[in-house]
Every structure is written in C-alpha cells, then in structure tokens.
Design a protein around this nucleic acid. Structure first.
Length: 207
DNA sequence: GGGCCGATCAAG
DNA sequence: TTGATCGGCCCA
C-alpha cells in the first residue's frame, strides 16, 4: 500500500462543517447510469433555523427527512414540476445541512450522457447546471436516500483525480436564492467552462 | 382543500 | 424574457 499524501476519508469530511464539505467535494467524481462527472460547482446549505434558503429551514418533513440523517447520503428533490436536483447530506445526525451539486465535467460515458440530453451541442453543457447534471446521469427520485459512499450504490461518489487546491476555488452568492446574499456559499473551480451561469434571484412583481 | 411558488431549463 | 409544469408547504 502506498503512502502518498491523501485526503482524509470523505465520510468524515462530509460529517463536519458544511462549507468545508462543499469545498472538498470539488474535483471528486460522481458516477451513475454509465456516466462519471468531475464536480466543478457546488453550494452549501445549512440546517434548520440557520439558513432560510435550506429545504430543512422549517424543520423535518417527509421530503427532507434524509437531510437529518448521517453524512454521505443522497437528498434528491423535484422542482419546477419537471427537474431533479441532488444534494449530498452533510453534518452529524440531527444537523440537516447539505451540499447541492450544481455542475460537473463529464469525464466518462459521454455517449450515455448525450443520449439522455440530445439537444446539447457542446460537451461542457452536458452537466452544466443542477438539473442538467442529474439528467445526464439519469438521477431521479429512485436515488433518494442512497449511500453515495457505498461501493455497491448505483450512484457513487469517489475520490477524483486530485484535490483542488484552495486558491483554485472561487466563491460567491448562491444561485436563485432570495436572501442571504452576503453569504458566499457557492463554490466552483475557477475558470472551469462547465460551471453554470450565475443567476441572481429575481422576485416576481407583486400587484 | 386551495393557492402560491420554487436551490431550473430551453427556446424565442 | 418567458412558458412549461407539479409537488411541497402554508394557511384557512
């Protein structure tokens, strides 16, 4: 067994602070449905009472229950009546923090990803956005609650080629979030072409 | 039970 | 810029 410097076990990193967990997920790979992406953009969400933008902000419900469990499990949700998005649950049991996977670079299974997203022209757009990423990997409701660190899981998170150095990570406000604009909890690999476009939340006009 | 709105995307 | 489309959550 080699002894080259390695990152600490992923599960223990995920069990800690959500911001650290989010940063450490960059550069890791996520595999499902014959496709593997290298994560290039993520967002941190804190738990109940701390973060108005979190799906767990108002407490535990059937939908968000998995967020209250241990780290490393998948919180998948349906939105806008048509899209799936995936989070990695972080923190210790009782702490409902999670990291939204916003974008990735398809590093293998490009053909399978293209088959699921026929309208896409450039490879960099295959998983450029949280719902696009799930679509490219074929992730839907059936992935809810899976242990992403279990070797036998159909949706799997692994180490990735190499750690992303801190100075290669950029941070900014989260996409589509109404409040907490001072909080820079969106993290991405600086300069990476697969990072999604930033869209500030625009409140609908009230009459 | 009713109404509102969203951690989005693709086309115009 | 806008429409698609529906589940979750709040309030009555």
């Amino acid at each position: 067994m080699g002894h080259a410097a390695r990152r600490p076990a992923l599960r223990s990193v995920l069990a800690g602070d959500v911001e650290d967990a989010a940063r450490s997920l960059l550069g890791r790979t996520l595999s499902a449905g014959g496709v593997t992406v290298r994560l290039t953009e993520v967002e941190a969400y804190a738990g109940t009472g701390e973060d108005p933008a979190s799906h767990a902000h108002r407490g535990q419900t059937t939908r968000n229950a998995i967020m209250f469990g241990p780290a490393g499990f998948a919180y998948v949700y349906f939105t806008y009546g048509m899209h799936w998005c995936m989070n990695v649950v972080t923190g210790t049991p009782g702490v409902a923090s999670a990291v939204l996977l916003r974008a990735g670079e398809v590093v293998s299974g490009v053909d399978a990803a293209r088959a699921r997203r026929p309208a896409v022209r450039r490879d960099v757009d295959l998983a450029r956005g949280p719902a696009r990423l799930c679509s490219a990997l074929g992730i839907d409701r059936s992935a809810y609650g899976l242990d992403l660190l279990d070797r036998a899981s159909p949706v799997r998170l692994s180490g990735g080629p190499s750690p992303v150095p801190p100075d290669a990570i950029a941070a900014g406000p989260r996409v589509g979030v109404t409040g907490a604009h001072d909080l820079e909890w969106r993290f991405w690999i600086a300069g990476d072409p697969t990072v999604s476009a930033y869209r500030r939340h625009v409140p609908k006009a009230r009459i």
